[in-house]
């Protein structure tokens, strides 16, 4: 008896997986926002060479970029589950590791990862704005903060959109790693259903299709955004 691909089960699994799309968004959108805010902060500190923080942050970025996300998440998960109880006790908190959902741990881990990469994205984008823009802003009396906020960042953001978009896609796919630390998301949910009938291929293909559709959607969204930001740089009219 040869292998039979069960299309019906695939469709059934798609239905299961779709219910966990919100989890995927939670695991990717929250880190994206946190990563954008913190990453921009790191980029600005490094851009302005604010001693000694610029060097410290540069080291941190290099260190965190050199460790695979799957290891970062696992180490964070183990540290958390092993160390949280004694830490909570030391702080006099009544909470134990079981009270904190693993989703939260995954969000923290993915946020750290996103922050590191997005800080590099933002640093590159900020560097693309010429020194003349700063000088002109200073010459009319703007402070460094006003210059960054009003002149430099608005010009750096359009540069950053495609790069942030591809980081968002990485995050969506990276969120799948959360399945390793027992967060129930698309992969864990679909595979769980296959435990009874061993139709794992259908389960994984269903999960794959869901991720693929999500990523395609994000790609379209980014393309749409790209066409709308930074109109001024192509001679358009507001």
């Amino acid at each position: 008896m040869g292998f039979q691909f069960d299309l019906g089960f695939l469709v059934y699994e798609l239905g299961i997986g779709i219910r966990y799309v919100p989890v995927v968004f939670l695991l990717s959108v929250v880190p994206l926002i946190i990563g954008l805010l913190l990453g921009t902060g790191i980029a600005v500190v490094r851009l302005l060479s604010l001693h000694p923080f610029d060097k410290i942050l540069a080291m941190l970025v290099i260190f965190l970029r050199g460790v695979p996300l799957v290891l970062q998440l696992t180490i964070l998960y183990l540290t958390f589950s092993l160390g949280f109880d004694s830490l909570a006790k030391a702080l006099g908190l009544a909470a134990t590791a079981k009270d904190i959902p693993y989703t939260f741990v995954a969000i923290v881990g993915l946020s750290v990862n996103a922050t590191v990469y997005l800080s590099e994205v933002m640093r590159t984008s900020l560097q693309s704005v010429g020194v003349g823009q700063y000088e002109a802003a200073y010459s009319v009396g703007l402070t460094t903060g006003q210059t960054l906020r009003r002149i430099v960042l608005p010009q750096a953001l359009p540069m950053a959109v495609p790069l942030v978009g591809s980081q968002f896609i990485s995050l969506i796919k990276g969120s799948a790693i959360a399945s390793l630390i027992s967060v129930v998301e698309v992969i864990n949910a679909t595979v769980y259903e296959a435990n009874g009938n061993y139709k794992f291929l259908e389960a994984y293909v269903a999960a794959g299709i869901i991720y693929w559709v999500l990523c395609m959607g994000v790609e379209r969204l980014v393309a749409w955004l790209e066409a709308r930001v930074g109109i001024y740089s192509r001679g358009g009219v507001a």
Partner: peptide, 18 residues
Amino acid sequence: RRSTAMVFQLYNLFQNKT
């Protein structure tokens, strides 16, 4: 800087502003 102003060789107009 608030009591002076400068005109630059390469204009340096703010590209994101009208």
